[in-house]
Computed example of a mutant assay.
Amino acid sequence: MIRNIAAGVQSFTSNAFLVTGERCVLVDTGSNFDAVDKIEELADGLDAVVLTHTHPDHVGNLETVKDAFGVDAYGFDTDQPGVDLAIADKEPVTLGDNDYLALHTPGHKNDHLCYYSESAHVLFAGDLIFQNGSFGRTDLEEGDRDTLIESIDRVAATTDEKLQEMHTGHGPSVTTNPHHDIELASKAARMY
Rank of each mutant, 00 (worst) to 15 (best):
M1A: 15
R3A: 09
G8R: 09
G8W: 07
G8M: 05
Q10F: 00
N15V: 08
V19I: 13
E22L: 09
C24T: 14
V25R: 07
T29D: 05
T29F: 00
V36K: 13
D37L: 06
E41A: 09
L46F: 03
L46D: 04
L51A: 10
T54W: 01
P56D: 14
D57T: 15
G60Q: 12
N61Q: 12
T64M: 02
K66L: 03
G70E: 11
D72N: 06
A73T: 11
Y74K: 03
Y74W: 10
Y74R: 05
T78F: 01
D79N: 11
G82F: 00
V83G: 10
D84C: 05
A86M: 07
A88C: 11
P92G: 01
L95C: 12
N98D: 12
A102Y: 10
L103K: 03
G107F: 01
H108K: 06
N110H: 11
H112V: 14
Y115I: 13
E118K: 11
E118T: 06
E118H: 11
V122I: 14
V122T: 10
V122Q: 03
G126R: 05
I129C: 11
I129A: 14
N132L: 09
E141I: 05
G143H: 03
L148V: 11
L148F: 05
S151L: 07
D153F: 05
T158G: 06
T159M: 01
T159K: 00
Q164M: 12
Q164G: 14
E165C: 08
T168C: 15
H170W: 12
P172W: 01
P172Q: 12
V174D: 09
V174N: 08
T176K: 05
T176D: 14
P178A: 11
H179S: 14
H180T: 15
I182C: 13
L184R: 11
A185P: 04
